[in-house]
């Protein structure tokens, strides 16, 4: 399944907790500037896959390549410097620190000049004006949508080549979900490849080029988003056999 133009190339990845595999032999590819969705019901193993790619969880089998370089089981703190950013689920920002401090931590250990740092801040403030407005507030005081923006900005400030987003819309009101997708479209327009895990299936399929479906830790289907949209495979992945019966 690997393609020559793949930026992120996941091959036969198996990983889990306490030696119990949650995902088994999953392969997927994200091309340059491409947006790819990873879909499946709760507990299918989507977050586990992202955690295994970013090194938070040890992969027991398989390989992950980033721009052709093997990064399997590389520690997450090393991986971020290679251009892969992972926005974990649940708006994992540092609530007790200010918005600006959170962004600064996004650049931790990047070794940038202060001029470059200032430029990176400007970039993010331009993309998310609300963060500029609230830059001195503790991140915990932001609204849910703003926290999600901050989590994304924190990952983007490193200018990653690949951005992995784990359910950025969870718990947000529809209007805010739309805003998140708008921002993701802007990010993608800058040439960042996106691997998106989403619950909002229809909206996600409108956004991405390609989607993969997993069920019970295995890949069950994949294809261009436009094709998958009308297939019964998606409904089956989420609703089992019930809704088709």
């Amino acid at each position: 399944m690997s393609r020559p133009d793949a930026i992120l190339d996941i091959r036969d990845l198996t990983a889990g907790y306490n030696a119990v595999p949650v995902i088994r032999g999953i392969s997927l590819c994200v091309g340059k500037g491409e947006a790819v969705a990873l879909l499946g019901a709760n507990g299918a193993g989507k977050s586990t896959l992202l955690r295994a790619v970013s090194g938070l969880l040890r992969a027991t089998e398989g390989a992950v390549l980033l721009s052709g370089e093997t990064i399997t089981n590389l520690a997450p703190e090393k991986l971020v410097r290679k251009g892969l950013s992972h926005v974990a689920e649940g708006r994992r920002i540092f609530r007790r620190l200010s918005v600006a401090d959170n962004l600064e931590l996004g650049l931790a250990r990047m070794g940038l000049s202060s001029a470059e740092t200032a430029r990176r801040f400007e970039e993010q403030y331009a993309l998310f004006p609300i963060l500029h407005e609230k830059r001195k507030d503790p991140a915990g005081a932001l609204s849910g949508g703003q926290q999600q923006m901050l989590a994304i900005a924190q990952a983007l400030i490193r200018r990653p080549t690949v951005l992995m987003l784990d359910e950025p819309s969870t718990g947000l009101a529809p209007i805010l979900i739309e805003e998140v997708f708008d921002k993701m479209a802007q990010i993608r327009a800058q040439g960042v490849s996106i691997l998106l895990v989403e619950q909002v299936v229809e909206r996600a399929l409108e956004f991405v080029d390609h989607a993969y479906l997993i069920q019970g830790g295995r890949l069950i289907a994949d294809g261009p988003a436009t094709e998958l949209k009308d297939s019964s495979a998606i409904r089956k992945a989420y609703m089992g056999d019930v809704s088709i019966a």
Binding site: A75, E77, F94, R96, E104, L105, G106, A108, R109
Partner: peptide
């Protein structure tokens, strides 16, 4: 200081800190 903030970050969320490049 950046290191001080990183320590606060680790105290709050170890995995989250790692995803920001903090060891």
């Amino acid at each position: 200081t950046l290191t001080g903030k990183a320590i606060s970050a680790v105290a709050e969320d170890r995995d989250g800190a790692r995803l920001n490049g903090i060891n």
